[in-house]
Structure formats: C-alpha cells, structure tokens
Write a protein that binds this DNA or RNA. Structure first.
Lengths: 233, 233
DNA sequence: ACCTGAACACCGTTCAAGT
DNA sequence: ACCTGAACACCGTTCAAGT
C-alpha cells in the first residue's frame, strides 16, 4: 500500500495518486459529494489546489479514480455454491462497497471507470454466469441488469438516508403527499414504501432477477445442450 | 395550461413556474445538466438570475420541478391486458420519459419529487400490481424494484451516449481496457456489452423482473387464496 | 408585487514563476 | 520535477433598492 519512494530525499513528495484518492474518500465521508471541492481536498493534503492537476486532469478524473477505488474493497466471492447464490453474493458485495462511502452510489453513477478493479468485478460476475450455463450474450445482459438494478437501488437508498432540503425527513414528506391526494394504491403500500429496511427491499428485487435468470438458464441450457442441467462444475 | 392572469395589466409578469420549468427543460436539452446554470436560465427568460428565487427556493427545487414535469408526459396505460404486460408498459413509459430529455435520468435521480405526476405514476404501477393479485407489501417492493432498475438502466444508457472526457467513445475505451488485461469472460461478452441496442438490454432485465414477479404472484396468490389464479378482474 | 444591480463567498482550471 | 501564487471565468444565493 505505502509506496513512498525514497522517503526523505528532497521534499516529502506529498502528492501521489493513491494518497490523494484515499484522502478524497475520507473527505467524501465527512462532507458529502456536493461539498467535496478540489480546494478543500488540496487543503487536506497540505497543498495548493493547482497541484492536484499534476495527477488528475480534471475533477471528473479524480471521481473516476475514487469509484474505481471503492470497488477494490469488494471481496472475491467464495468458490463453492451454485451460480445463483454466487451471483447474489456479488450483487450484495457491490451494494456494500457503494454503501461504504457517503454518496458512494452517486460517485459511481457519475463515472465510468475502466480500471482493473471495476473490470475484475464485472469479469467475475460474467464468469459466474457463463459457468452457470449462460451464453455470452445472456451473460453480458444479465451483468448489466444486475449492476443497473444494484446501482439504482443504492442510489435511492443513499438518497433516502440523507436529510432533504427542507426540515422534513423523506418518509414523512412522502406520507403527507400521498395522503393529500387520490392515491389509494400508494396509500396502501405506504408502510412498505416508507420502511427503512433497505436490505429487505434490495433482496426482493434481487430475488426477482435471479428467479428470471433461473427460468432463462433452464430453457437456455436446453436450447443449446438439448437437455436440462444449468448446474456448474 | 396558460394561466397568465389578467394579461396586459402592469408589466408582462414574465416569470411563472410553468414557463420557467419549460424553458429549463429546453435549455437542458441543448446544454446538458452540467451547463444548465441559474444565470443562463435567467438569460433565456430575459430576467436577472436573482429573480428566479421568487419562484424556486433553490436550484435543487427547480430540478425537482423539472423531474416532476418529465413524468407528466407519461401516458396513462391502456386499460386492458394482463397485469404483467401493463406493468411492462409503465416501465417502458418511464424509460421513454427520462430519455426524452438530455440527462433526464440524472435529473430524475438527483431529485425526489412528491408531485402529482410522480405520485400518479407510482400509484398506477402499484395499482396494476395490487389488481394483479399482489399484496400491499409485495406491490410496494415490486414498484421500487422496477423503478430502481429502470432508473439505473436509463442512467447508464444516457451516460453511454454522451461523449466521454477524452476523445474516445465509451465502447472503444471499454474494448481496449478489456483487451489490456486478463478478463476472459468480459472479452467473451464484449460484443453484447458494447452493443448500442439499449432497448434490447432494457427489455432483457425487465423480462427477468416480470418473470420473477409472475413466479411470486402465483405462489403469493396461492398463499392467500388457497388456490391458483393471480389473474386480474 | 416583482424585478434589478450588485455584492458575497465561493467554484474548476490554467500557468508563469519559483525551488 | 513538483509546487506556489495568482489569476480567469465563472458559480448559487442574498438583499437593499427601485418601479
């Protein structure tokens, strides 16, 4: 982790990519994305704002590096188990990685990292699917479906947790709005919609996707191999 | 729509909420979210920036009104058909509404409208599910799953379409990154992952969710009614 | 009542000049 | 080679003052 090359030679060489990204993630946690500025980050690093541009061409570049870094904390999935349980584990790991930092989902959504960690994660997901019997096209599309769902869910989860612009909390505002108009179905579902058990919400949608994939996998394997058995080695 | 009360009296009363939101959406289409500023919007309305704050407390407030306005273009779903086809139609309508404006998904993701159009849309989705035989809790969770998936997908779709920071287009950057490392599964799925047939991608994930809901609906109806038949009236 | 003018406290980014 | 200092061209937001 620490690669302070030839420390003590000349000036401390205060700035490097890794330390800058780490500090930026710390600052993100304490300030939130909207208040994370290049100047404040420079301050935290004991440097002028302009110095950051020796390591990152733009702020967007820095945010991409932060998103890439967040996925680095994703643990490798355990080897055994069925493909569907392994896939679920990977989706949960992605949600956990995004939740680990304030506004993590927003940072991730706003960038398009093609870094090693991001690609490793996507490659692992795709591998689980292919080894589960899906063809290349279905594996690619399933990867996108699971990632997009997880991103959308976590975005909403983190948005619901931060305080709104006005004084009211998010669930209370929704409750009053629903009760103020003719929204009978929404009113009936309100206890669920205002629940803060986001893990249960996430698991519900994830289960739907897995169920759909199981149905597809069974018919897909039959289509290709002439018989059932989408089971892995 | 036009409520220019007592036109011709005094000054033209240039500013009102509806016209401001419409102009803001036009500007969004031509400039994109990052270049949509209160000053530029004021310019387009022939007014000083400060005047906007008589109608919107903050820029965030304006963005919320814009998101709410985008969902107004969602057509009511046709009455007939099975609940799953009606639900699919609503998800497609949401995607279409977000795609209708540049960065539409980003605007929607960054706000939490509790306006009439947003609630009407959610109420309709929940109604389709309840009438399809789902209990209130499952209907609420299914609403969130479908909305979050649609949001995540459309976010990625619009992000993939806008040009990146560097000169390279998004698919080409991904291709080079994948080929530069040991990502065999990603390489196999690359033709799918770089495809720009986003409708096909969206439909794939949507089908998974619907399949999962069908399976759940069948067992859920059995659980409650003691027999099959999740069919609507 | 509604808008202007002008300010306040910031931004991201660039770049000559220093060491 | 790496960072400073200072500037450029902006931001969102506020508010006395005008009409």
């Amino acid at each position: 982790m620490s690669s302070t090359s030839s420390a003590g030679r000349g000036r401390p060489a205060r700035l490097d990519r890794a330390r800058t990204v780490d500090t930026a993630l710390d600052l993100l946690d304490s300030l939130g994305l909207d208040d994370l500025t290049m100047r404040r980050l420079a301050d935290s690093l004991g440097v002028q704002a302009g110095a950051l541009y020796r390591h990152f061409a733009t702020k967007q570049d820095l945010l991409t590096a932060m998103a890439e870094r967040m996925l680095a904390d994703t643990p490798a999935p355990r080897e055994g188990g069925d493909w569907d349980e392994r896939l679920a584990g990977l989706a949960r790991a992605m949600r956990t990685a995004l939740l680990a930092h304030r506004d993590g989902a927003r940072v991730f959504a706003g960038t398009h990292s093609t870094g090693a960690h991001t690609l490793r994660f996507s490659d692992t997901v795709t591998g689980v699917l292919r080894e589960g019997g899906f063809n290349d096209e279905d594996a690619g599309r399933a990867l996108m479906a699971v990632v997009n769902y997880t991103l959308g869910h976590t975005l909403e989860e983190q948005a619901a947790l931060r305080p709104g612009d006005d004084d009211m909390a998010d669930p209370e505002r929704l409750r009053r709005a629903v009760e103020s108009g003719p929204f009978p179905h929404l009113a009936a579902a309100l206890p669920t919609l205002t629940s803060t058990d986001f893990t249960a919400h996430f698991e519900f949608g994830l289960r739907l996707l897995l169920q759909g994939l199981r149905a597809l996998g069974a018919s897909g394997a039959r289509r290709r191999a002439g018989g059932g058995g989408a089971g892995s080695a």
